[in-house]
Each structure stands twice: as structure tokens, then as C-alpha cells.
Simulated assay, not measured.
Amino acid sequence: MSPRVPGSAGPVPARAVTPDGAVRQVCRALPEETPVAVVCNGTTQAVMMATPDHIPDFAHGFALSEGFIRDLNDIEEFEVVTHDAGLEARFWLVAEREQALAARRRTMAGPVGCGLCGIDSLDQAARSLPAITAPGAAFSASEISEATDALRGQQPLHDATRAVHAAGLLLPGRGIILAREDVGRHNALDKLLGAMLRDGINPGAGAVVMTSRVSLELVQKCAVAGVPILVAVSAPTAAALRAAEAAGLTVAANARGGGFDLYSHPHRLSGEPDDA
């Protein structure tokens, strides 16, 4: 078996049953997931189940996409503390961010598949989003159509486990330059946004590529972070598309097999394909 990939557990014994009923002993790598508490100024803002790699990226991206911070200048201190029950990502923020914490406080505990679990107010599920007015980078149709295939080449945890999502940063003429994986698609995006923030990468310089459908919360996170283009292997929900239209976010979905569906704000594609 290949060496253990960060974020995975293994080898785990199992019995593989073939279509003809034969049984053989196998060992599989499985993705790990652990509770991660995001704590700001001594108060827990959220508890998420996440893959326990790139936790600083995850915490910074979550704090950014949820509006707890605007940039690194809002953070006085940061540390990750390990407990028997999980991990704490502790932020100490500047005093003026207290109001933002109070307005956007979430208490989430449970499966990663539901990014809106435990929100204190239903109004927060449809939070107003900043308008994305920057033109963003111009991509060719071929760069968009090939983006999800390119991301597949940067998913070692998926290759080992077949059980995680990924988010990647696509730059014009350079392909996917950065990728993060997690059991949850929202977490993978937060890890990517956090890595970009910590590395000083302008979110308006490229596109985010996802291995999932386009949910409302993915659109919200991209808009808050200032990402102008979201590319995904599957379709958007109607609510996600309405939010993307209102925020000025370009959505290219069902991007696989050499094609894609362009749903909103097509001006960011150079040489936009003509209608058939």
C-alpha cells in the first residue's frame, strides 16, 4: 500500500465483495475527520467536523468567509491547540471586530454536509453579500472546461480514500496553482481561502474550482472573500444562482468532459462561446 496521505487513516481492513460474490481481504485508506472549534476572543464561534490537515488555513478561511475578519490585520494572535476531543483554532482579534462577531455568531456541530446547521437566525441564511465589481481575470473557454480535470491531478487524499472534496485556485495561463481537500466542500473552500489569505494571494486574480455542486453557502463564501469566478463540476442550486447573480459572481457549472454551463456574469470569459 502507498504511504499514508496527510488527513487519512490507514490501512483499515475490509472485505471486498465482487459482483460474482467472491470475497477478498483488502486494506483501505479512509479520510479522518475531527471536531474543530473556531474560537475568537475566548468565545467559540463554530464547531465543524473537518479533515485534520491544513487547520490554520481552514480557520483563517472560515473566519474570512464568515465575516469575522477582513484581513490579517484584524488578527492579533492565532494558535491551534490539541485536545483529546479535537482541535481548537484560537484567534485573538482586534477590539473593533467584536461587533462583527456578535452579528455573525454561529454554533455549528454535526455533519459537514450541512453548512448552515445551527445558525442563530434564519435571516443569516440569506445574508446580504458585497457586490463583486472587479472585472477579475479573463479566462478562455478551454481553461474553464479543463479546470476540474486539472484539479483532479492535485487530490492525493481523494486518490487514497475516494471520500473527500477539493477546492483549487485557477490562474489564467497557469492552471491550478493551489488546492486544498477536506471531507466537506465548505471546509475545502475555507482551507483554500485561508491559504490564499496567509500567502498574500489576491482572490480577485483567479477563479475557484470545486469538485461539488454549487450551494448557496459556497456562493456566499466566495462573494465575501472577493472571488469573482466559481467553477464547479456539478450544477448550482436555484438559490445559489440567484445569490450569484445579485452579487456579481460568475458561475460556470457542470464543467467536465470538455464543456460547461455558464450561468451568470459571462463577461469574465474572454472570447465567450457563441450560442449554437
Rank of each mutant, 00 (worst) to 15 (best):
L169V: 08
I144G: 10
T107Q: 05
D149K: 12
V17A: 05
R180Y: 05
G248D: 09
A240V: 05
D57K: 14
S212T: 06
N73F: 08
L30I: 14
G175V: 04
L101D: 11
R162Q: 09
A188P: 13
I229T: 14
T211L: 09
V47I: 11
R152D: 09
A102V: 09
D182E: 09
A137T: 07
S142I: 06
D274Y: 06
A147C: 01
P172S: 03
P156W: 01
A225W: 05
L87P: 12
V47N: 01
C114A: 13
A225Y: 11
G67A: 08
A16Y: 08
A138D: 11
E181K: 06
L262Y: 04
V12P: 15
T43V: 10
A207E: 08
G184M: 03
G61F: 03
L197E: 00
V36D: 00
V38D: 01
L30T: 13
P35H: 06
R90H: 07
F91D: 07
Q155N: 06
P6E: 03
A9Y: 04
P6R: 07
N187T: 13
A150L: 11
P228F: 06
A244N: 05
R242F: 02
R24V: 06
R152C: 09
A100H: 10
V94R: 12
P31L: 05
P6N: 07
D71N: 11
A160L: 01
Q220P: 14
H267C: 10
T82K: 15
T148C: 10
L116F: 10
L218F: 00
A134L: 09
T43E: 02
P31R: 07
R268C: 09
E245W: 12
A195H: 13
G42A: 03
V251M: 08
A100E: 10
D274T: 14
A95E: 11
G61S: 13
H83L: 15
A138L: 12
S140V: 05
G110F: 01
T250V: 05
E217L: 08
S140W: 00
